[in-house]
Nucleic acid binder design. Structure first.
Length: 214
DNA sequence: TAGTCACT
DNA sequence: ACTA
């Protein structure tokens, strides 16, 4: 039976740019399990507010899991195998994370995606991410997979140059964005998170960013 | 010496 | 205030 409802109509998947797609509701019922795993990771490697090389405190709280974790401080951006806060290796990437990331990548046209890094960003209301590029990885042939959980957000997807006009894309709990190929190094960001309460996550949005870093 | 995952 |  076809979906007929205007009430539950959802925007279809769409291309954002060459090589970039939004997969709406891709996570489906796995959201609960993904959130449980995020909490396990955060128990071992707590969310913390890092600083940019310029010394500014980021509004987003960060942790990582997997073999490599992205960090930033006065010395710059880089991937490290140990949590600088405590010196232990980052928590292992949960199997479910790898499965969801690989499935999303395949659905977007990038088979055999095996990320070694999962950056976990926690946005509370007013937190934002200004336009930036993901360029700290070694192989730009590998795509980026970004999973949204919790409160909705407006994702900004620009172009190859900082000044390119950015598209505004509304992302809901369970949506996944994948970008690679010609759009692998495109500027992107997140508009300031609006107030709200999510049934599962409460007053927060959590984003999982999967990458092949090393 | 340009560029900056930040702010106004 | 750093690095590449």
């Amino acid at each position: 039976m076809q979906q007929q409802g205007f009430a539950f109509a959802r925007e279809p998947d769409e291309a954002l740019a060459p090589g970039a797609r939004v997969l709406r509701g891709f996570v489906c019922e796995a959201g609960v399990a993904l959130w449980a795993e995020v909490q396990r990771v955060a128990a071992a490697a707590p969310f913390r507010h890092m600083h940019t090389p310029g010394g500014r405190r980021m509004s987003v709280a960060i942790t990582n899991c997997g073999a490599r974790g992205w960090v930033t401080d006065r010395r710059g951006y880089r991937y490290v195998t140990e949590d600088p806060q405590g010196g232990a290796p980052w928590p292992a990437m949960p199997a479910l994370f790898g499965e969801v990331a690989a499935a999303a990548a395949t659905a977007a046209g990038y088979p055999d995606f095996r990320p070694d890094a999962c950056l976990i960003n926690r946005y509370e209301p007013s937190a934002r991410m200004t336009l930036h590029q993901d360029v700290d990885e070694r192989d730009f042939d590998q795509p980026i997979v970004s999973v949204s959980l919790g409160l909705p957000a407006v994702f900004l997807f620009g172009g190859a140059a900082r000044g390119d006009k950015a598209r505004r894309v509304s992302l809901q709990h369970g949506d996944v964005v994948v970008w690679g190929g010609p759009s692998r190094r495109f500027f992107h960001g997140v508009a300031p998170l609006r107030e709200g309460e999510h049934a599962l996550l409460g007053r927060a949005r959590v984003n999982l960013t999967f990458r092949v870093a090393g």
